[in-house]
Design a protein around this nucleic acid. Sequence first.
DNA 1: ACCTGTGGCGAAACAC
DNA 2: GTGTTTCGCCAC
Length: 865
Amino acid sequence: MGTPSLEDYLREGEKKREEFPKEGVIKGREEIETPSDTGPCVILSVTYSGEKRKALVKLYDPSNGKIYFWYDNSGHKPYCLTDISPEEIISNHSEVVSHKGFDHFERVVKYDALSDKKVVMTKVVALDPLSIGGSRGSIRELLPRAWEAKIKYHHCYIYDTGLIPCMYYRIEKGKLVPVNFKLPRKLIELVDRLYGLSDVRDEALEWVKLLQAPIPEMRMLAMDIEVHSPVANRIPNPKEAPYPVIAIAFSSNDGFKEVLLLDRGEAKGGKPKDLDGKVSLKYYKKESDLLREAFKIINSYPILLTFNGDNFDLNYLYHRALKLGFDKRDIPIVLTSDAASLRIGIHIDLYKFFENHAMQVYAFKNKYREVKTLDSISSALLGVGKVKLDKPISELNYLELAKYCFRDADLTLKLARYNNNTTINLIIMLSRISKLPIEDLTRTGISNWVKNLLYFEHRRKGYLIPNPEDLLARKGVVSTKAIIKGKKYLGAIVINPLPGIFFDVTVLDFASLYPSVIKKWNLSYETVRCPHEECKSNRIPGTTHWVCKKNRGLMSTIVGFLRDFRVRIYKPLAKKEKREDLRLFYEVVQQALKVFINASYGVFGSSNFPLYCPPVAESTTALGRYAIIKTIKKAYELGLMVIYGDTDSVFLWRPTEDKISELLAWSERELGIDLDVDKVYRLVAFSGRKKNYLGILKDGGIDVKGLVGKKRNTPEFIKELFNEISSIIMKAEDINSLERALEEIGKVTRRSYLKLKSRAYSLDELAFRVALTKPLKEYVKNTPQHVKAARQLEKYGIQIEAGDIISFVKVRSSLGVKPVQLARIDEIDEEKYLAHIETTCRQVLEALGIDFDKILGASSMDSFL
DNA sequence: ACCTGTGGCGAAACAC
DNA sequence: GTGTTTCGCCAC
């Protein structure tokens, strides 16, 4: 393969420009309006055309549901040549090589935060060839080549125009003007309380305007397709699109529900009303007519939702349409290397969004953590899964097919509308904060979101964006050693828990510890190890770093804002608000902010992040350790008993109210970080291991942390046993009632073992379910059990990919494991299973100071073995 | 092309 | 056999 040549890029560029829509008209749909003036519209996306030297802005008017195209060339001057050589540009002007944007050379003054100096820069083109590869091509390599060819097109992005996606704009006399919604007095007061007298009040107000802008209600269309495949359970290759599309289902939030079916000459049994809801069925004799109708429908919506549409549905439709003789321009889909976008509306692939780890953990509270399939996610979030099939797709009759296909489309829509539109509203809010267009936001990871937000702020404030190499050369040092081999720096502290059962335990924790530390200590890539001599005395405890006393760090400021807005404004509002719709709105804002502030620390420790700065990450954790150690010390001074703590929390045994308030006040005063009561346990059982305990809350809820009985990969029957045991402990009122609890625990444990012995558990209940984190071939260092099982499956022609969850049981054979599909109940290795029962129970029982062997009863054990 | 971090546990595989 | 490494999953 090798690096593509400039000619390759140019060819690609030509192709791209060809696809850029002509003024106001797109073939395949009559006309898209390019209005001269509009009311408040939402920005859906912005794309640039080098040749036309214009931006194409897709706007959506929620009041009438219309999509507008608007062409903007206001910010783009004609390019000019310069006498500066590309080598000189690259070696002297870091901004040139650090981002894309601008179509001309121009002298500008920028602030170089790293050296704390103003510098005169030359802004340079981003060339059209670059836009093809996006950030994938090395600008250092491409610039000289493009220079040689004297070809200068441009490529811009939303953050270069200052346009903010998903925000409201109005077209007035040929210009895009932001629409300012009036801030409620309440919000202004809240901001004033936080920043009233400071010089950042205006900036804070701008942020709040962004967060408070109403979330538009947009028409959304969810789609799913089914393909006739002669081989059951084999997903056809979308690039080849060898088989006909037999069904396309749509479900929209405006009530449109339809399934288009290919008429294969079979009897059309049943009636549409047999389907859930009011779904209409349409039959097409010709596949091309079916596609044409589907394209028409797609074109009439601003948002198209799919589940895995990038890789499959849209990809397949595109190639299938080409195969059927469609003109490219009549297909509303434009494929890029890793996504499928639309000419008119925008496409959200929910699969990619839900795959994002940040979404799973923060926004959806780990509600789905199994395999990421439409079935598992919708079952977890909505309580409804896919239609179960007992025969291959190609053997279904029309009605069965329609029902199956429609369910998928409908589930996709419902996922987007989960919890009163939380998903889509969250996407919009994240898009506004990160300044990423929805299409990119939903397809990229959190580091890209933070990067875009920071770059936007750099540009807005006239800061030079540092080159990663320059940054690393100055800030590559670390001064601590990680506990875990292979890690870069020292992380958090975990207090060794006192083993045993404790009644009446209060947990205190720092509200967003790391973001608070970043804010409070002015941590940012430019302020940690800053160039000023006089700051070197301002040391960060536990490290050799120091932090700037003269300038506010950019990162610190932004994280500080977001943290304050979340902790001081939106979280309280979400708690207090009575009006349901408003409460949900505040909740969405609060969640979106949480995603950003929680990731803000981690990205600086990630070498892939373009502003990678280990001293910032290291200083953050160092100050976190400092805070918790100081707090524990203070707690002891106050006579409080600390029995456990992890990173940002301390567990106090039987504390008094006033001692707690004293500690909280001390933290606020001395550390400047909010310490709060997080929860109160009636009972906590520590096994003696870190990150491993069971707690019963005052209100009766139960917290299980880290115990194997809770892990996703442990067999179902052990989980069941574990649940029984924890519910027994839950009933314990005090130390005395524990005696009886122990007996009961022994009973259920023995029962479970007997059941195992007598083969009363099914293979499924016995199965370990472990995910492959990489392709099978890449397991070279050793062969874990799930890989062994997967390799056996592979021999039977089953395709195995990274991310698949392998279910296997332990058997008495040379390999020790077999995939459930291939195993028989009589070959399971019960000794291995007994060992698992043991560790599960041991973790709980050791907390009670009881030996596992005792529980099982020595005599009964002997008789089994 | 994808990518936020470190600390900790348990099981099995590997190295000696 | 024992000690170390690898892997997956979890806590924060």
